[in-house]
Amino acid sequence: MKIQTKAEVLEILKMPYEEFNNTIKQKAKEVHVNNNENSVNVTALFGYDNICKNQCKYCGMRAGNSGLKRYRIGIDDAKKTEEAVKKLGIKRVFLISGEDPKYDFKDIVSMVEYGKKIGLFVSLAAGEFSIDQYRALENVGLDEYVLKFETSNRDMFTKIKPSTNFEKRMKCIEYIKNSKIELASGNIIGLPHQTLEQVADDIILMKELNISWAPVIPYMPVPNTPLAKEGGRGSLQTTIKEISILRIMMPKVNITAQQPGEDAKNGLADIQGNLNALSAGANMLFVDMLPKNLVKDFNVIDNRMIEGIDNVNKLVEMSGMNWLRNLNF
C-alpha cells in the first residue's frame, strides 16, 4: 500500500474510524513490524530549562505565564543527568528547553558534546538558532535537532506563534537539513479552527522534509493561555490516523507513542492512549529524567505527565513489542 498525495491522505483522515481501524491502522502496524522489527525506541526526556522568551499562545511555558515557577538546571547537573540516562541502559536522550536567551549557548554545546562522549544518541530542542549555532552543534556531533513547524498554514502559524514567523522557522529547518544533523519536526493536531485539509498539508510537509522523528501529539489546551479560550483538545482519532499515515508513508521514521487517552487528566501517561498509538504504528516512548519537584513546571501542555522506566517496561510487555537497545549511530 502506498500513500503519496494530499488527496490520498485526506481520504484517510475523513474515513470512518471503524473502517480505518480495520484497514489502514492494521497495515501501518504491519509496516512497522516488517521494517523495524516491531521495536519500541525508548528515549530519556530531560527538560533542563523552562524559561522562554516567546509568547506562543498555546504553551504553558510562554513568557506571559507569570504563575509558573521557573527553573534553569546548570551544566554540571545536566551532565550528571546524562550519566544517569546511560546507567539506566537508555541509548537516546532528548534535551529540551524553553527558548531561554540567558542559558549560555556554550553550555548547551557542552551538554551535547558530553552526551556524545559517553555514547548517547543526542536530540536537542531549544528553539530557533543562527546558522553558526547549528554548525557549532553539528561540530560536536549532535545527532538530531527537534524543531516543529507546528502548522504549515502561515496564517495559523502567525496567530499561534507571534514571537516568530513561518519564514524564519522554515529557514532554521533549512539550516538543519543542510547539515549532518537529522531533523525532527511535525505538527500540532487539532488546533482550534484547523481543518483536515490543513492536517493533510502538514503530513505532506513532513514527508517532503524527510524527517527522522515525528514528535506529533494532539492539541492539549493549557488553562490561562490565549488559545485555550478558542477550543478544546484535538481529536484523538485524527491523531491515530496521522500516526498510521506517517508510518505507511515513511516506514523508518520514529513516531511519538506517548499519546493521551480519553481521560485528559492522565496526560501523556495514559496507558490506553500509549497502547493505541503503538498499535497504529508509533514507536517512541519516553522516560522523564526531571526531579519530581520540577516535573509539574515543565508544562508545555496541560497534564503533560510522563512516567519512568518501569512504565516503559510495562507498556513494551503489554504491547508485545521489543525494546530497541542497539542503535546504529
Results as ranks from 00 to 15, higher is better:
316 V>W: 05
284 M>W: 00
160 I>Y: 06
192 P>F: 08
311 N>V: 07
315 L>F: 04
261 G>P: 08
247 R>A: 10
67 G>M: 04
59 C>H: 05
185 S>R: 05
222 V>Y: 14
228 A>T: 11
159 K>L: 05
101 P>K: 01
191 L>T: 03
171 K>L: 15
11 E>I: 05
73 I>S: 09
300 V>T: 04
11 E>D: 15
105 F>Q: 03
110 S>C: 09
317 E>N: 13
138 E>K: 07
69 K>E: 12
223 P>A: 00
134 Y>M: 07
309 I>A: 10
224 N>C: 00
122 V>L: 08
158 T>W: 03
71 Y>F: 15
215 P>L: 00
177 K>E: 13
205 L>K: 00
272 Q>F: 12
308 G>H: 07
143 D>V: 02
89 G>W: 10
212 S>P: 08
309 I>N: 12
5 T>D: 10
20 F>T: 10
20 F>N: 09
274 N>T: 04
201 D>K: 02
113 E>K: 15
204 I>H: 00
261 G>V: 13
107 D>H: 05
85 V>E: 06
179 S>G: 03
7 A>K: 14
323 W>H: 11
232 G>M: 06
88 L>N: 12
236 L>Y: 08
179 S>Y: 02
35 N>D: 09
140 V>F: 05
215 P>Q: 00
307 E>M: 14
288 D>P: 01
175 Y>M: 03
46 F>T: 11
223 P>W: 00
127 G>Y: 12
140 V>C: 08
238 T>L: 12
328 N>P: 04
312 V>E: 07
320 G>A: 13
318 M>C: 06
323 W>L: 12
90 I>P: 09
296 K>F: 03
208 E>A: 01
311 N>A: 13
147 L>N: 03
320 G>K: 11
180 K>M: 13
125 A>W: 04
214 A>P: 09
242 E>K: 02
252 K>S: 12
88 L>P: 10
244 S>K: 05
235 S>D: 13
172 C>M: 14
40 V>A: 03
25 K>C: 13
201 D>A: 01
263 D>S: 10
248 I>S: 14
109 V>G: 01
148 K>T: 10
214 A>I: 08
268 L>P: 00
